[in-house]
């Protein structure tokens, strides 16, 4: 009945004309004909860490005039897997699309959670870094990392290590890595997972767990205010924001773990495009606009691009893969 009415008033041709007009109009309203246009694909929702990175970088790029127009597309789901699958599937029309991502993409690719791996994508550049840290409450009898090692060697079951995400995720792996470097069995680490970094911190402060494995960014404020003490950091060298915290290297353990955040292009992106994108990002580091964004968010610069970024990722992958095999995850 409805369709009959519809056909009576609107001939098919009229309908087609209207539809194409709308397509044209909507296309022109959405598409920007500028050459300098980028599209950021964000694998998580608005307000998350990936979202903040993409929008922060985008702000610096547009305000400094390096890029005329940037659009942002949030596509959450599958722990980030949906966005990767989307980028792979529509690669041809995504030549100016950059997907933001971070260390978990390596871990989840190994776990075969995604239908694709990060290796299917074209790495462009890492832009910022965070490091793993271990912390105890201020009142704790543990004073330094060496005591943690002794406690662990005496009885690993007495030492609860908490983190803000599930077993086999970054906080757990960093903890396993640290105890492996000591020469102990990483499987014996009693890891207590929480569903958010803030809750893991609250758990530590409530006395529920002994040690917290987390990112420096998430523990900095509590360390500065004297609620917790950071015992060691997984960076290559001491961090200027916590100059009194020793690195594992100084303590004599080969533990370096960098949690990077960076950008990927679609599969088989031409070398030319890769160069344009990574140069744009490189130029951004010199702008005052980026400095403003960086300070506002408390980020640490880490620029690795192109081939180097690829090698860095492969190295990280082989380290994590070895560890996860030892832990029984793979």
């Amino acid at each position: 009945m409805i369709s009959r009415n519809f056909i009576k008033y609107w001939t098919i041709r009229q309908v087609i004309t209207i539809v194409t007009t709308f397509l044209l109009v909507s296309h022109y309203l959405i598409a920007d004909t500028q050459v300098h246009r980028l599209h950021f694909l964000i694998p998580g929702g608005a307000g998350g860490g990936w979202d903040g990175t993409a929008r922060g970088v985008g702000e610096a790029l547009t305000k400094s005039g390096l890029v005329k127009h940037i659009s942002y597309q949030n596509m959450s789901g599958g722990g980030g897997g949906r966005a990767i699958a989307h980028l792979v599937k529509t690669a041809k029309r995504q030549q100016d699309t950059l997907m933001v991502n971070s260390t978990p993409i390596v871990i989840r690719s190994l776990q075969k959670i995604f239908s694709h791996s990060f290796q299917d994508l074209t790495p462009i550049a890492a832009v910022i870094a965070d490091y793993g840290v271990f912390a105890v409450v201020n009142e704790s009898e543990i004073q330094n990392w060496q005591q943690v090692v002794t406690l662990f060697q005496n009885d690993p079951s007495q030492l609860t290590v908490s983190g803000g995400s599930g077993r086999g995720s970054m906080d757990h792996l960093v903890a396993a890595l640290a105890f492996q470097a000591v020469g102990e069995d990483p499987k014996k680490v009693r890891y207590i997972p929480y569903d958010a970094g803030g809750k893991a911190m609250a758990g530590l402060l409530s006395g529920e767990t002994k040690i917290l494995s987390t990112g420096l960014g998430e523990a900095l404020e509590q360390h500065r205010s004297g609620q917790i003490r950071i015992l060691a950091i997984t960076a290559n060298e001491r961090s200027p924001v916590v100059p009194n915290v020793p690195t594992f290297k100084e303590l004599g353990y080969e533990v370096v773990f960098i949690n990077w955040r960076g950008f990927f292009g679609p599969p088989d992106l031409s070398q030319e495009k890769v160069k344009i994108h990574s140069k744009t990002l490189k130029k951004m580091f010199q702008t005052p606009h980026w400095e403003k964004v960086r300070i506002r968010n408390g980020w640490k610069n880490l620029y690795i691009s192109g081939e180097k970024f690829h090698n860095f990722l492969m190295q990280q992958e082989s380290m994590i893969s070895k560890l996860m095999k030892e832990l029984g995850f793979l």
Binding site: L23, S26, H27, I30, H39, Y72
Partner: peptide, 18 residues
């Protein structure tokens, strides 16, 4: 960001307007 749909992308891809 609202995707303009695969059809319009297909049509405009053919017309080479992008």
């Amino acid at each position: 960001y609202l995707d303009s749909g695969s059809l319009s992308k297909f049509v405009f891809g053919l017309l080479n307007l992008d």
